[in-house]
Design a protein around this nucleic acid. Structure first.
Lengths: 239, 239
DNA sequence: AATATAAACTTGTTTAGACAAGTTGTCAAT
DNA sequence: ATTGACAACTTGTCTAAACAAGTTTATATT
């Protein structure tokens, strides 16, 4: 059972997606939302604030909440969304080929190093996967998960969805991630796994994922074929 | 004069940056903030919510607001930040070379086309600039600004900062932007302006910027040398 | 007809209070 | 020494109310 503002957010978001509220029109006013959902104004405003933040609406003082053009669901970088979740929303067929699985193994992972100290080897589960999208291998994912947080990862979880295992089965509360995108020449592993020529480029997304108690527990290096990579973002100007 | 919650946000943010509140420690509790700033709890919570959203803190129920590692200021993609603003925060020397300026000119810009209709030529100001960072030309920016919104752009504004001109002098209220990052081979214009070899790759950021009344008025194509490009992002998991 | 005014809407900000729920330390009973 | 209950903290959610400020419409005045 979610809270009221989240329920209102979901409902409005769905109705925008289904064009019950069409692009270029206004949502019901805040007072109308109070009556429609039986909530207080601040609760409705919390839902509207989330919609604005995520690019569904633009609030205009004195007028209302205007439905604006919204980015379609895009590929695997925007926000924290698991592969499986994305594939479902995008209606593409994806396969997941685990070609390396080591557990436990001690590796010096920069992301898990304490501040200022040197990078010591820590026990992790190391997983390497190739993502096959519509029959074509496009992405290599290398995951390093702290053994101290997740002692054991069944191989079926790696082949299916790590996030579903962490959240659904272990009850971990995944809160946030920092990501960095760079462009780098393909290495021999890239070329081998994805069948690329020499001189090919890769979009590399490195990310550190943390739980609600702020412990960083997962480091991921996601290497995308440059010609297939696309990242979309919605940003608001802060003053 | 900003509102109270924004003032509290700014103050806390600065104190985190200056390590008055250190990484790994907790901010004053919400009730303490009420007393410290003479505000109500909800006002303080609004400031804390913004800090959490922007990756400064992690709120932990029952414990407090933990200061977490925050991305340093990064390259010109995250959020809507003007070049000049970024250069100042990053302490790098930047130059701005305007090598093409056409106004007004009728161009068919996809971003300004009405929904579903064909792409008709519209009057815009077209500006092409090379960004020179620490003495090296790294980025080409191509801007197309709707003449119907901004009738006239002085050349000094293009050489200095378009944002400063739009916001400071014209009083435009810039609200949000959608961005798309792709990787593409360098074209002849890229190679010529930036002095690149054949086979070089570019990170291309295409963005559409809109005002507070939701009118899209600026389309920008920003082409970065691949080896200099870096994009950092902070994302929260939504449930 | 044109203009100014006022009323009725809209969103933006802030307050004070209540209750729920997670965390921590104290203190008493075992 | 261990356990259990409780109190005192923390954040999370929600409400009702007030006032400010921008937009629109209707009305009265000129």
């Amino acid at each position: 059972m979610l809270n009221k503002s989240a329920l209102v957010y979901d409902d409005l978001m769905q109705k925008i997606d289904q064009e019950v509220y069409e692009l270029g029109t206004y949502l019901p006013s805040e007072n109308q939302l109070c009556q429609l959902y039986g909530i207080s104004r601040e609760t409705g405003r919390k839902a509207l604030g989330l919609l604005a933040e995520n690019g569904y609406i633009q609030k205009i003082r004195g007028k209302g909440s205007l439905v604006i053009e919204h980015r379609q669901y895009e590929f695997p970088v925007s926000g924290i969304v698991s592969y499986k979740e994305l594939a479902q929303k995008m209606h593409v067929t994806t396969e997941n080929l685990v070609y390396s699985f080591e557990s436990p193994v001690a590796l010096p992972v920069q992301a898990f190093a304490s501040l200022g100290g040197e990078v010591k080897p820590v026990p992790v589960t190391a997983i390497k996967r190739v993502r096959i999208i519509d029959g074509e291998p496009d992405i290599i994912d290398k995951d390093y998960i702290l053994t101290s947080v997740v002692p054991d990862i069944p191989k079926r979880a790696a082949a299916d969805s790590l996030y579903a295992y962490f959240e659904g089965e272990l009850g971990l509360d995944i809160a946030y991630a920092t990501k960095e995108i760079t462009m780098e020449p393909a290495n021999s592993e890239d070329r081998e796994q994805l069948g690329l020529d020499k001189g090919a480029y890769m979009a590399v997304v490195r990310s550190v994922t943390s739980l609600a108690d702020a412990t960083a527990f997962q480091y991921t290096e996601s290497r995308h074929r440059a010609d297939k990579f696309r990242f979309r973002d919605f940003a608001r100007r802060t003053k």
